[in-house]
């Protein structure tokens, strides 16, 4: 029996115990982070970035039921926004807090620009068009040498600072990412519970019937696309600031597929599932360090297995954040 089954199937009493345990581990991990060696802080940071990306992409895939295989393009938009506005490349040195909204808006704009033509299409085509779009963005970045530095990328990005406080060490980024993930997670969770979130679910279940009850599906899908792109773009900007280097290698198709994989394995349509999926994605290479290349094979097979045997993923939608809160704080 998997952890989630235990969580959902067991009586509230024991379910609560396990919920507390998971919660306690999370808190302990957060509290311990400042004292961990840099290497582990970096691992946790990329875990947080993946969670952020997962939260973004899940809006489109999990809530709205649209397969977007070009998500990494928005991640790239954010990363290159930071790289261009805070580096010697164009000799611009904007502060981090000024770039963040710019990156967010650019991401949203890209999402809407892609979405307007594409979202009217049949659902299955969306996957292939977004995939093509992701590749277009990557090829353009790769070849627009004068702007993006081509395959070599852009190096020596500025150190970020927020209101005069330098954000440079891994632990600084840990706090920045943690706050971002928490804020994004809560907002997106509330969005899912809002009337728009219900409309997304209706579109996922039956788009024609959703139109039949008065939902302007194009607008609702655009909203999903734009929100998701914004989060991806913000994740990209933070990623660029923390690496202080960007190159097209970070934005391949495989990266997009990995984020999809993470969502499906963890629990499609559930923020808690994404955390679980990201944890697996990040912990696996640590466990299988000798067999680095086996990791993706394992993930691929795990995904096939789960889709067939347990399509809801490790933490199913029915065990969402509200349920966790109820388990933790009674009622």
């Amino acid at each position: 029996m998997s952890v989630a089954e235990t969580l959902t199937a067991a009586k509230p009493h024991s379910g609560r115990a396990i919920s507390f345990l998971v919660f306690a581990i999370a808190i302990a991990l957060i509290a311990a982070s400042p004292f961990l060696p840099n290497y582990y802080v970096r691992v946790i940071n990329s875990l947080l970035i993946y969670i952020l990306l997962g939260i973004g992409l899940n809006i489109v895939i999990g809530y709205t039921g649209l397969l977007d295989l070009g998500f990494v393009a928005f991640y790239a938009v954010g990363a290159y926004s930071y790289a261009l506005l805070a580096s010697p490349q164009l000799d611009l040195h904007w502060p981090f807090l000024a770039i963040l909204p710019v990156a967010a808006c650019l991401g949203a704009a890209t999402g809407i620009l892609l979405g307007i033509p594409v979202l009217r299409l049949r659902g299955d085509y969306l996957a292939i068009v977004t995939l093509g779009f992701g590749e277009i963005i990557r090829i353009i970045i790769n070849n627009l040498d004068w702007l993006t530095g081509g395959p070599k990328g852009i190096a020596r990005l500025d150190k970020a600072s927020i209101l005069g406080i330098q954000v440079a060490r891994p632990i600084d980024f840990f706090w920045l990412l943690l706050i971002t993930v928490l804020v994004a997670g809560v907002l997106v969770w509330r969005l899912e519970r809002s009337i728009l979130g219900k409309a997304w679910a209706a579109i996922r279940e039956d788009q024609d019937a959703a139109r039949g009850i008065g939902i302007n599906t194009t607008n609702a899908k655009l909203a999903a696309f734009a929100t998701s792109a914004t989060i991806g773009s913000i994740a990209g900007a933070i990623f660029a600031a923390s690496q202080r280097f960007v190159s097209p290698e970070s934005f391949t198709l495989q990266e997009s597929v990995l984020i999809v994989l993470m969502i499906v394995i963890g629990g499609i349509g559930n923020i808690l599932g994404i955390v679980a999926g990201a944890a697996i994605l990040m912990l696996l290479p640590e466990v299988l360090r000798e067999f680095a290349e086996w990791r993706i094979l394992f993930l691929g097979l795990l995904m096939i297995f789960l889709i067939i045997v347990r399509p809801a993923g490790i933490v199913p939608r029915s065990f969402g954040p509200d349920k966790l809160i109820r388990r933790l704080f009674g009622k």
């Binding site: 597929v257 999809v260 993706i296 691929g300 097979l301 995904m303």
Partner: peptide
């Protein structure tokens, strides 16, 4: 999604 997994594997 399953075919994506197959492809990757």
């Amino acid at each position: 999604l399953s075919s994506l997994g197959v492809s990757l594997s």
